[in-house]
Design a protein around this nucleic acid. Structure first.
Lengths: 141, 141
DNA sequence: TGTAGGGTCTGTAGCGGCTACAGGCTCAAG
DNA sequence: CTTGAGCCTGTAGCCGCTACAGACCCTACA
């Protein structure tokens, strides 16, 4: 199978290189139904079309944006088999955005505790490490 | 075993309630060596001392602060069997703090992409959902 | 035509950090 | 003496991959 026998038609390795996705991950996504099973050659090799690549790229970008797998399924219309409406997508995005903001808040609280305690300790000889003390007595949230 | 036969001496369930930790998690931490095996009654019931409770609280707080398990091991002196020096603790905290800040940065980039795209879409009838378009074409990082 | 090397195929096991059973034992209260 | 809660062990499952092993196939070069 050369690179040029048709404009499309990628092997699994080619798809992996084209998308930057780990080759095993592609198989994984097929197994869990995130990517449709591609057609095969006589010998059983997968042949991916550009539509597969587009879908995989979508999944990878959504993942970069922190969407959970079940959200990505929803965005792809895999939950009930119907294409999601614009309102669906909007709602899902807003919910995810709220989660992201909450997580930022959590991490900022963590950051301030860590920064405060690390500043107290120069790393030199100090009895009763203030960092360990802070961990044993700090409450986050 | 009553609650009052000695000042200390907790069963597993009591320890779980006292620390807010899931009872199974305690067993898990013992299995992976984060908590020492406690002494047992004749019938095999675990009896935890206050030192176990203190250690478990330490682990739980460190976890709340987002430390990875291997860092917590380090903070507890479980990596090489020696108590960590103040400098060790400081370095580990600074490294973790840097990780936390990096994660905050990642999430903020994600937030801005999500907020920007969600704002473009009212959820009403719009051709070519801008959210899906943004996902298919946005790069984070 | 043979062979070496890459790529691909399948199935399965492992990671971290738990969580949730099943099936049995023990303990305290009534 | 029974009942029900709690404890014991071992094992399996969760997510989202990742990494094999062992077999097959395909291409290039001699």
């Amino acid at each position: 199978m050369s690179d040029h026998d048709s404009e499309s038609g990628l092997t699994r390795g080619e798809l992996a290189r084209a998308t930057g996705c780990n080759i095993e991950t592609i198989r994984h996504y097929e197994k869990i139904g995130m990517l449709p099973d591609p057609p095969r050659t006589g010998a059983g090799y997968r042949i991916y079309a550009q539509s597969h690549a587009a879908r995989l790229r979508f999944i990878l970008r959504a993942r970069e944006l922190g969407f959970a797998m079940k959200d990505i399924r929803g965005l792809l219309g895999l939950e009930d088999g119907t294409a999601p409406t614009c309102a669906d997508v909007h709602a899902r995005t807003e919910r995810h955005l709220a989660d992201v903001r909450a997580k930022i808040g959590d991490l900022k609280r963590i950051e301030s505790v860590l920064a405060g305690t690390a500043a107290k300790c120069s790393g030199d000889e100090v009895p009763d490490c203030p960092v360990l003390d802070a961990i044993t007595s700090s409450f986050v949230r």
